[in-house]
Structure formats: structure tokens, C-alpha cells
């Protein structure tokens, strides 16, 4: 099975992926993890704002908007059958 790992900021709107890792270097990482962005969690890119940033994501049943600077910290895995 082919798996592609991309940054969450590159996940196209409307597609689903699974969180793989979070950049632990960033001080924002802790907060993201506390909010449920932990490895293995399914996530969906919902919509990108008219000006191109931020993007809303659906995770654990709620929606949250992240800027590229935050979503770029998260690595996700897109499974072919998810697309």
C-alpha cells in the first residue's frame, strides 16, 4: 500500500488524513497535542479562508482554524483509500 506523508498545511480542502507526528520543537506543539492533535487521529481539511489562510480542520468531532504556521508543524499520512 502506498502511503504519502505530507504536512497538514498541504492537505487539500475536503480530504481526510491521519496525523503521523508533530514537531516537538515548537512551543505550540504542546497546545496542539492537548487539543487532540495526537498521532493516529483522523483529521479532515474542511475549508480554506478566502485569502488563502487559515484553514479549518475537523478533528475529534470539532472544527478549528489553524494558520499555516501551526498546521505546518503537523505531519499527516494520506491513505489512498481515504482520498
Amino acid at each position: 500500500m502506498v502511503r504519502t506523508t505530507v504536512s497538514l498545511s498541504d492537505l487539500p480542502a475536503g480530504s481526510i488524513a491521519t496525523i503521523r507526528d508533530i514537531d516537538a520543537e515548537s512551543p505550540t506543539a504542546q497546545r496542539l497535542m492537548d487539543m487532540g492533535f495526537v498521532p493516529g487521529t483522523p483529521i479532515r481539511a474542511v475549508r480554506t479562508a478566502p485569502m488563502g489562510d487559515p484553514t479549518t480542520f475537523e478533528i475529534r468531532g470539532y472544527q478549528v482554524g489553524l494558520r499555516r504556521s501551526e498546521s505546518g508543524l503537523i505531519g499527516v499520512e494520506i491513505k489512498p483509500d481515504d482520498k
Binding site: R31, L32, V64, G65, S69, E70
Partner: peptide
């Protein structure tokens, strides 16, 4: 200032 941008909908 460590202030992540998290905008809950």
C-alpha cells in the same frame, strides 16, 4: 509571547 493561533469554530 507564546500565543498559538487556534480558532475554534
Amino acid at each position: 509571547e507564546n500565543s498559538p493561533f487556534l480558532l475554534e469554530m
